[in-house]
Design a protein around this nucleic acid. Structure first.
Lengths: 200, 200
DNA sequence: ATCAATATATGAACGTTGTTCATTTTTTAA
DNA sequence: TTAAAAAATGAACAACGTTCATATATTGAT
Protein backbone atom coordinates (compact mmCIF):
# COMPACT_ATOMS: atom_id res chain seq x y z
CA UNK A 1 0.00 0.00 0.00
CA UNK A 2 2.76 2.44 -1.00
CA UNK A 3 0.30 4.72 -2.72
CA UNK A 4 -0.31 6.84 0.35
CA UNK A 5 3.43 7.14 0.73
CA UNK A 6 3.82 8.30 -2.84
CA UNK A 7 1.06 10.85 -2.40
CA UNK A 8 2.75 12.21 0.70
CA UNK A 9 6.02 12.36 -1.16
CA UNK A 10 4.43 14.22 -4.03
CA UNK A 11 2.82 16.64 -1.62
CA UNK A 12 6.13 17.55 -0.01
CA UNK A 13 7.76 17.71 -3.42
CA UNK A 14 5.18 20.22 -4.50
CA UNK A 15 5.63 22.24 -1.33
CA UNK A 16 9.37 22.25 -1.89
CA UNK A 17 8.96 23.32 -5.49
CA UNK A 18 6.78 26.20 -4.37
CA UNK A 19 9.21 27.20 -1.64
CA UNK A 20 12.22 27.07 -3.90
CA UNK A 21 10.43 29.13 -6.53
CA UNK A 22 9.49 31.62 -3.83
CA UNK A 23 13.08 31.74 -2.59
CA UNK A 24 14.36 32.32 -6.09
CA UNK A 25 12.02 35.26 -6.62
CA UNK A 26 12.75 36.44 -3.09
CA UNK A 27 16.50 36.52 -3.58
CA UNK A 28 16.12 38.01 -7.00
CA UNK A 29 14.39 41.23 -6.18
CA UNK A 30 13.21 41.04 -2.61
CA UNK A 31 9.88 40.92 -1.04
CA UNK A 32 7.43 42.39 -3.47
CA UNK A 33 8.81 40.24 -6.23
CA UNK A 34 7.31 37.16 -4.62
CA UNK A 35 3.78 37.20 -5.98
CA UNK A 36 1.51 34.23 -6.12
CA UNK A 37 1.20 34.57 -9.86
CA UNK A 38 4.94 34.62 -10.39
CA UNK A 39 5.40 31.57 -8.19
CA UNK A 40 2.70 29.80 -10.17
CA UNK A 41 4.33 30.76 -13.44
CA UNK A 42 7.67 29.54 -12.13
CA UNK A 43 6.49 26.09 -11.13
CA UNK A 44 4.26 25.89 -14.21
CA UNK A 45 1.03 25.48 -12.31
CA UNK A 46 -1.95 27.76 -11.99
CA UNK A 47 -2.31 30.24 -9.14
CA UNK A 48 -5.08 28.34 -7.44
CA UNK A 49 -2.94 25.24 -7.04
CA UNK A 50 -0.60 26.97 -4.60
CA UNK A 51 -3.48 27.36 -2.20
CA UNK A 52 -3.87 23.59 -2.08
CA UNK A 53 -0.42 23.38 -0.52
CA UNK A 54 -0.20 26.59 1.47
CA UNK A 55 -2.93 28.38 3.38
CA UNK A 56 -1.85 31.74 2.07
CA UNK A 57 1.15 33.84 1.10
CA UNK A 58 2.20 34.31 4.71
CA UNK A 59 2.57 30.60 5.27
CA UNK A 60 5.08 30.50 2.45
CA UNK A 61 7.13 33.23 4.07
CA UNK A 62 6.82 31.51 7.41
CA UNK A 63 8.22 28.33 5.96
CA UNK A 64 11.11 30.23 4.38
CA UNK A 65 11.87 31.84 7.70
CA UNK A 66 12.19 28.38 9.24
CA UNK A 67 14.67 27.37 6.53
CA UNK A 68 16.66 30.46 7.33
CA UNK A 69 16.82 29.48 10.98
CA UNK A 70 18.24 26.12 10.06
CA UNK A 71 21.20 27.61 8.24
CA UNK A 72 21.52 30.12 11.05
CA UNK A 73 21.72 27.44 13.71
CA UNK A 74 24.16 25.37 11.69
CA UNK A 75 26.59 28.28 11.46
CA UNK A 76 26.40 28.92 15.16
CA UNK A 77 27.07 25.30 16.00
CA UNK A 78 30.13 25.41 13.78
CA UNK A 79 31.97 27.82 16.09
CA UNK A 80 31.24 25.93 19.30
CA UNK A 81 34.66 24.32 19.19
CA UNK A 82 36.42 27.62 19.80
CA UNK A 83 38.05 26.97 23.15
CA UNK A 84 38.42 30.37 24.76
CA UNK A 85 34.99 31.52 26.05
CA UNK A 86 35.69 35.15 25.29
CA UNK A 87 36.83 34.41 21.76
CA UNK A 88 33.84 32.12 21.30
CA UNK A 89 31.39 34.81 22.27
CA UNK A 90 32.92 37.34 19.93
CA UNK A 91 32.95 34.74 17.20
CA UNK A 92 29.32 34.12 17.99
CA UNK A 93 28.58 37.76 17.32
CA UNK A 94 30.61 37.75 14.15
CA UNK A 95 28.80 34.70 12.81
CA UNK A 96 25.51 36.38 13.64
CA UNK A 97 26.35 39.50 11.69
CA UNK A 98 27.93 37.58 8.84
CA UNK A 99 24.72 35.62 8.44
CA UNK A 100 22.80 38.86 8.06
CA UNK A 101 25.29 40.00 5.42
CA UNK A 102 25.20 36.73 3.50
CA UNK A 103 21.45 36.21 3.69
CA UNK A 104 19.93 39.65 4.18
CA UNK A 105 16.52 38.48 3.04
CA UNK A 106 16.49 35.52 5.37
CA UNK A 107 17.59 37.77 8.19
CA UNK A 108 14.85 40.16 7.31
CA UNK A 109 12.26 37.43 7.40
CA UNK A 110 13.55 36.02 10.67
CA UNK A 111 14.15 39.12 12.74
CA UNK A 112 12.66 42.17 11.10
CA UNK A 113 9.78 41.59 8.76
CA UNK A 114 6.25 41.68 10.06
CA UNK A 115 4.97 39.11 7.58
CA UNK A 116 5.85 35.98 9.54
CA UNK A 117 5.37 37.83 12.80
CA UNK A 118 1.68 37.52 12.33
CA UNK A 119 1.88 33.79 11.96
CA UNK A 120 4.06 33.57 15.04
CA UNK A 121 1.38 34.16 17.58
CA UNK A 122 2.31 31.56 20.12
CA UNK A 123 5.82 31.26 21.49
CA UNK A 124 5.61 27.70 20.28
CA UNK A 125 6.28 28.61 16.67
CA UNK A 126 9.39 30.51 17.64
CA UNK A 127 11.06 27.20 18.48
CA UNK A 128 13.86 27.81 15.99
CA UNK A 129 14.54 31.11 17.73
CA UNK A 130 14.70 29.62 21.20
CA UNK A 131 17.25 27.05 20.17
CA UNK A 132 19.82 29.62 19.10
CA UNK A 133 19.05 31.84 22.06
CA UNK A 134 19.76 28.93 24.39
CA UNK A 135 23.09 28.46 22.67
CA UNK A 136 23.97 32.07 23.37
CA UNK A 137 23.03 31.69 27.03
CA UNK A 138 25.13 28.57 27.26
CA UNK A 139 28.16 30.39 25.90
CA UNK A 140 27.59 33.23 28.33
CA UNK A 141 27.31 30.93 31.31
CA UNK A 142 30.56 29.26 30.27
CA UNK A 143 32.22 32.65 29.98
CA UNK A 144 30.85 33.37 33.45
CA UNK A 145 32.57 30.21 34.63
CA UNK A 146 35.81 31.59 33.20
CA UNK A 147 35.49 34.78 35.23
CA UNK A 148 33.64 37.07 32.85
CA UNK A 149 30.26 38.71 33.40
CA UNK A 150 30.76 39.16 37.12
CA UNK A 151 27.59 40.41 38.82
CA UNK A 152 25.62 40.17 35.59
CA UNK A 153 22.44 38.17 35.23
CA UNK A 154 22.67 35.71 32.36
CA UNK A 155 19.28 36.71 31.00
CA UNK A 156 20.32 40.34 30.97
CA UNK A 157 23.63 39.52 29.32
CA UNK A 158 21.98 37.39 26.65
CA UNK A 159 19.40 40.02 25.88
CA UNK A 160 22.07 42.70 25.76
CA UNK A 161 24.34 40.80 23.41
CA UNK A 162 21.48 39.82 21.17
CA UNK A 163 20.23 43.40 20.99
CA UNK A 164 23.72 44.56 20.19
CA UNK A 165 24.36 42.30 17.22
CA UNK A 166 20.79 42.58 16.04
CA UNK A 167 21.14 46.33 16.12
CA UNK A 168 24.18 46.16 13.87
CA UNK A 169 22.66 43.56 11.59
CA UNK A 170 19.35 45.32 11.14
CA UNK A 171 20.92 48.71 10.54
CA UNK A 172 22.89 47.00 7.82
CA UNK A 173 20.01 45.02 6.34
CA UNK A 174 17.65 47.97 6.29
CA UNK A 175 20.16 50.41 4.87
CA UNK A 176 20.54 52.76 7.79
CA UNK A 177 24.30 52.90 7.61
CA UNK A 178 24.66 55.64 5.06
CA UNK A 179 25.39 57.80 8.08
CA UNK A 180 28.90 56.39 7.85
CA UNK A 181 30.95 56.08 4.65
CA UNK A 182 30.76 52.60 3.11
CA UNK A 183 34.45 51.81 3.54
CA UNK A 184 34.15 52.54 7.27
CA UNK A 185 31.49 49.90 7.88
CA UNK A 186 33.74 46.91 8.33
CA UNK A 187 36.23 48.44 10.79
CA UNK A 188 33.26 49.93 12.61
CA UNK A 189 31.67 46.53 13.08
CA UNK A 190 34.85 44.83 14.25
CA UNK A 191 35.50 47.83 16.47
CA UNK A 192 32.05 47.50 17.95
CA UNK A 193 32.60 43.83 18.73
CA UNK A 194 35.85 44.77 20.48
CA UNK A 195 34.02 47.50 22.36
CA UNK A 196 31.31 45.25 23.73
CA UNK A 197 33.99 42.93 25.07
CA UNK A 198 34.80 45.62 27.61
CA UNK A 199 31.50 44.88 29.28
CA UNK A 200 32.21 41.17 29.61
CA UNK B 1 0.36 91.20 -4.86
CA UNK B 2 -0.31 88.92 -1.84
CA UNK B 3 -1.96 86.39 -4.06
CA UNK B 4 1.21 84.37 -4.60
CA UNK B 5 1.65 84.30 -0.83
CA UNK B 6 -1.86 83.05 -0.30
CA UNK B 7 -1.37 80.35 -2.90
CA UNK B 8 1.79 79.21 -1.20
CA UNK B 9 -0.03 79.18 2.11
CA UNK B 10 -2.85 77.13 0.67
CA UNK B 11 -0.38 74.72 -0.84
CA UNK B 12 1.30 74.04 2.48
CA UNK B 13 -2.08 73.85 4.17
CA UNK B 14 -3.12 71.17 1.75
CA UNK B 15 0.10 69.30 2.26
CA UNK B 16 -0.39 69.46 5.99
CA UNK B 17 -3.97 68.27 5.70
CA UNK B 18 -2.81 65.30 3.67
CA UNK B 19 -0.03 64.51 6.11
CA UNK B 20 -2.27 64.75 9.13
CA UNK B 21 -4.84 62.50 7.49
CA UNK B 22 -2.08 60.04 6.66
CA UNK B 23 -0.80 60.18 10.23
CA UNK B 24 -4.27 59.57 11.59
CA UNK B 25 -4.73 56.48 9.44
CA UNK B 26 -1.17 55.44 10.17
CA UNK B 27 -1.61 55.58 13.93
CA UNK B 28 -4.98 53.98 13.69
CA UNK B 29 -4.11 50.71 12.12
CA UNK B 30 -0.57 50.89 10.89
CA UNK B 31 0.97 50.87 7.53
CA UNK B 32 -1.44 49.22 5.20
CA UNK B 33 -4.23 51.37 6.49
CA UNK B 34 -2.73 54.39 4.78
CA UNK B 35 -4.14 54.11 1.29
CA UNK B 36 -4.38 56.96 -1.13
CA UNK B 37 -8.11 56.51 -1.38
CA UNK B 38 -8.59 56.64 2.37
CA UNK B 39 -6.47 59.76 2.63
CA UNK B 40 -8.54 61.33 -0.11
CA UNK B 41 -11.78 60.38 1.61
CA UNK B 42 -10.45 61.81 4.84
CA UNK B 43 -9.56 65.23 3.45
CA UNK B 44 -12.68 65.22 1.26
CA UNK B 45 -10.83 65.49 -2.01
CA UNK B 46 -10.48 63.06 -4.86
CA UNK B 47 -7.56 60.65 -5.14
CA UNK B 48 -5.96 62.44 -8.03
CA UNK B 49 -5.64 65.67 -6.06
CA UNK B 50 -3.11 64.15 -3.67
CA UNK B 51 -0.74 63.67 -6.56
CA UNK B 52 -0.74 67.41 -7.16
CA UNK B 53 0.87 67.85 -3.74
CA UNK B 54 2.95 64.71 -3.37
CA UNK B 55 4.88 62.84 -6.03
CA UNK B 56 3.69 59.48 -4.73
CA UNK B 57 2.82 57.52 -1.61
CA UNK B 58 6.46 57.21 -0.59
CA UNK B 59 6.89 60.95 -0.45
CA UNK B 60 4.10 61.10 2.09
CA UNK B 61 5.83 58.55 4.27
CA UNK B 62 9.12 60.34 3.82
CA UNK B 63 7.56 63.55 5.07
CA UNK B 64 6.08 61.74 8.08
CA UNK B 65 9.48 60.30 8.87
CA UNK B 66 10.87 63.81 9.00
CA UNK B 67 8.16 64.83 11.46
CA UNK B 68 9.11 61.87 13.59
CA UNK B 69 12.71 63.01 13.66
CA UNK B 70 11.66 66.40 14.93
CA UNK B 71 9.95 64.97 17.99
CA UNK B 72 12.87 62.60 18.37
CA UNK B 73 15.40 65.41 18.42
CA UNK B 74 13.32 67.49 20.81
CA UNK B 75 13.27 64.69 23.33
CA UNK B 76 16.98 64.20 23.11
CA UNK B 77 17.68 67.89 23.62
CA UNK B 78 15.51 67.80 26.71
CA UNK B 79 17.96 65.60 28.61
CA UNK B 80 21.06 67.59 27.74
CA UNK B 81 20.90 69.35 31.09
CA UNK B 82 21.72 66.16 32.99
CA UNK B 83 25.08 67.05 34.50
CA UNK B 84 26.85 63.72 35.00
CA UNK B 85 28.11 62.50 31.60
CA UNK B 86 27.55 58.86 32.49
CA UNK B 87 23.99 59.49 33.65
CA UNK B 88 23.38 61.63 30.58
CA UNK B 89 24.43 58.87 28.22
CA UNK B 90 22.24 56.30 29.92
CA UNK B 91 19.39 58.78 29.90
CA UNK B 92 20.09 59.26 26.21
CA UNK B 93 19.57 55.56 25.65
CA UNK B 94 16.45 55.53 27.75
CA UNK B 95 14.95 58.42 25.82
CA UNK B 96 15.78 56.64 22.59
CA UNK B 97 13.99 53.48 23.62
CA UNK B 98 11.08 55.34 25.16
CA UNK B 99 10.55 57.12 21.86
CA UNK B 100 10.28 53.79 20.10
CA UNK B 101 7.74 52.65 22.69
CA UNK B 102 5.68 55.83 22.49
CA UNK B 103 5.77 56.19 18.71
CA UNK B 104 6.39 52.71 17.35
CA UNK B 105 5.15 53.68 13.92
CA UNK B 106 7.35 56.72 13.70
CA UNK B 107 10.27 54.65 14.85
CA UNK B 108 9.46 52.10 12.24
CA UNK B 109 9.40 54.70 9.53
CA UNK B 110 12.61 56.31 10.71
CA UNK B 111 14.83 53.33 11.39
CA UNK B 112 13.29 50.15 10.09
CA UNK B 113 10.88 50.49 7.24
CA UNK B 114 12.07 50.30 3.68
CA UNK B 115 9.47 52.73 2.36
CA UNK B 116 11.36 55.94 3.07
CA UNK B 117 14.67 54.17 2.58
CA UNK B 118 14.11 54.27 -1.12
CA UNK B 119 13.58 57.99 -1.10
CA UNK B 120 16.70 58.46 1.01
CA UNK B 121 19.26 57.89 -1.69
CA UNK B 122 21.70 60.60 -0.90
CA UNK B 123 23.11 61.17 2.54
CA UNK B 124 21.76 64.66 2.20
CA UNK B 125 18.20 63.63 2.99
CA UNK B 126 19.29 61.94 6.20
CA UNK B 127 19.98 65.36 7.69
CA UNK B 128 17.56 64.74 10.51
CA UNK B 129 19.45 61.57 11.32
CA UNK B 130 22.85 63.21 11.34
CA UNK B 131 21.73 65.86 13.78
CA UNK B 132 20.83 63.37 16.48
CA UNK B 133 23.87 61.25 15.77
CA UNK B 134 26.08 64.28 16.30
CA UNK B 135 24.40 64.85 19.63
CA UNK B 136 25.29 61.32 20.66
CA UNK B 137 28.89 61.81 19.62
CA UNK B 138 29.02 65.05 21.59
CA UNK B 139 27.81 63.29 24.72
CA UNK B 140 30.34 60.54 24.23
CA UNK B 141 33.22 62.96 23.80
CA UNK B 142 32.15 64.74 26.98
CA UNK B 143 32.04 61.41 28.81
CA UNK B 144 35.50 60.78 27.39
CA UNK B 145 36.59 64.05 28.96
CA UNK B 146 35.28 62.78 32.29
CA UNK B 147 37.44 59.68 32.06
CA UNK B 148 35.13 57.20 30.38
CA UNK B 149 35.69 55.45 27.05
CA UNK B 150 39.44 55.18 27.52
CA UNK B 151 41.14 53.87 24.38
CA UNK B 152 37.88 53.85 22.46
CA UNK B 153 37.37 55.67 19.21
CA UNK B 154 34.41 58.01 19.37
CA UNK B 155 33.04 56.80 16.05
CA UNK B 156 33.20 53.23 17.27
CA UNK B 157 31.56 54.12 20.56
CA UNK B 158 28.78 56.05 18.86
CA UNK B 159 28.08 53.27 16.42
CA UNK B 160 28.13 50.71 19.22
CA UNK B 161 25.73 52.60 21.44
CA UNK B 162 23.41 53.34 18.59
CA UNK B 163 23.38 49.72 17.50
CA UNK B 164 22.69 48.68 21.05
CA UNK B 165 19.62 50.84 21.65
CA UNK B 166 18.40 50.34 18.11
CA UNK B 167 18.65 46.61 18.64
CA UNK B 168 16.45 46.82 21.71
CA UNK B 169 14.02 49.25 20.12
CA UNK B 170 13.61 47.32 16.91
CA UNK B 171 13.19 43.97 18.64
CA UNK B 172 10.42 45.65 20.57
CA UNK B 173 8.80 47.41 17.65
CA UNK B 174 8.86 44.36 15.42
CA UNK B 175 7.58 41.97 18.08
CA UNK B 176 10.64 39.78 18.48
CA UNK B 177 10.52 39.78 22.27
CA UNK B 178 8.10 36.95 22.81
CA UNK B 179 11.24 34.98 23.57
CA UNK B 180 11.00 36.53 27.01
CA UNK B 181 7.82 36.78 29.13
CA UNK B 182 6.13 40.18 28.81
CA UNK B 183 6.59 41.16 32.45
CA UNK B 184 10.34 40.60 32.09
CA UNK B 185 10.78 43.12 29.31
CA UNK B 186 11.11 46.24 31.41
CA UNK B 187 13.69 44.92 33.90
CA UNK B 188 15.54 43.41 30.97
CA UNK B 189 15.80 46.75 29.21
CA UNK B 190 16.95 48.64 32.29
CA UNK B 191 19.32 45.78 33.04
CA UNK B 192 20.73 46.02 29.55
CA UNK B 193 21.35 49.75 29.92
CA UNK B 194 23.18 49.04 33.16
CA UNK B 195 25.15 46.33 31.41
CA UNK B 196 26.39 48.51 28.59
CA UNK B 197 27.66 51.04 31.16
CA UNK B 198 30.31 48.48 32.02
CA UNK B 199 31.90 49.16 28.66
CA UNK B 200 32.07 52.90 29.21
C1' DA C 1 -12.33 -2.54 -18.80
C1' DT C 2 -15.88 0.27 -16.77
C1' DC C 3 -17.48 3.47 -13.67
C1' DA C 4 -18.63 6.14 -9.67
C1' DA C 5 -16.05 8.52 -6.27
C1' DT C 6 -12.42 11.05 -4.76
C1' DA C 7 -8.50 14.03 -5.31
C1' DT C 8 -6.17 17.53 -7.87
C1' DA C 9 -5.88 21.45 -10.93
C1' DT C 10 -7.70 25.31 -13.33
C1' DG C 11 -8.44 30.27 -14.25
C1' DA C 12 -12.14 33.68 -14.42
C1' DA C 13 -13.94 36.72 -11.05
C1' DC C 14 -13.88 39.81 -6.88
C1' DG C 15 -12.33 43.42 -4.28
C1' DT C 16 -8.27 45.66 -3.34
C1' DT C 17 -4.11 48.58 -4.34
C1' DG C 18 -1.02 52.90 -6.51
C1' DT C 19 -0.87 55.73 -10.33
C1' DT C 20 -2.14 58.27 -14.68
C1' DC C 21 -4.55 61.56 -17.53
C1' DA C 22 -8.35 63.31 -20.46
C1' DT C 23 -11.93 66.02 -18.89
C1' DT C 24 -14.28 69.40 -16.07
C1' DT C 25 -14.45 73.08 -12.75
C1' DT C 26 -12.54 77.05 -10.53
C1' DT C 27 -9.64 80.98 -10.24
C1' DT C 28 -7.00 84.51 -12.25
C1' DA C 29 -5.76 88.82 -14.84
C1' DA C 30 -6.87 91.63 -18.87
C1' DT D 1 -16.98 89.70 -19.60
C1' DT D 2 -13.82 86.49 -21.23
C1' DA D 3 -9.74 83.98 -22.56
C1' DA D 4 -5.99 81.70 -20.20
C1' DA D 5 -4.10 79.32 -16.41
C1' DA D 6 -4.55 76.56 -12.39
C1' DA D 7 -6.72 73.10 -9.65
C1' DA D 8 -9.64 69.17 -9.05
C1' DT D 9 -11.92 65.17 -10.72
C1' DG D 10 -12.73 60.16 -11.21
C1' DA D 11 -12.81 56.55 -14.70
C1' DA D 12 -9.34 53.53 -16.41
C1' DC D 13 -5.20 50.52 -16.06
C1' DA D 14 -2.30 47.02 -14.48
C1' DA D 15 -1.19 44.30 -10.70
C1' DC D 16 -2.13 42.14 -6.31
C1' DG D 17 -4.06 38.03 -2.88
C1' DT D 18 -7.71 35.09 -2.55
C1' DT D 19 -11.91 32.30 -3.70
C1' DC D 20 -14.65 28.86 -5.98
C1' DA D 21 -17.47 26.79 -9.61
C1' DT D 22 -15.81 24.01 -13.11
C1' DA D 23 -12.90 20.63 -15.32
C1' DT D 24 -9.51 17.03 -15.39
C1' DA D 25 -7.03 13.15 -13.47
C1' DT D 26 -6.53 9.35 -10.34
C1' DT D 27 -8.28 5.97 -7.52
C1' DG D 28 -10.42 1.35 -5.83
C1' DA D 29 -14.42 -1.53 -6.65
C1' DT D 30 -17.05 -3.96 -9.79
Amino acid sequence: MGIKERKDRQKTEMREAILSAALKLFSGDGFDNVTMRRIAENIEYSVGTIYLYFKDRNEIFFELHKLGFEEFYKRQLAIQDVKDPLKRLTEHGLVYIQFAIDYPLYYDLMFISRIPGKTIKSQHDWKSGHRTYDLLKLNISQAKGAGYFKNVDIEVAAFSLWSFVHGIASLYVRDRMMIVPPEAVKPLVTGALKFIERAY
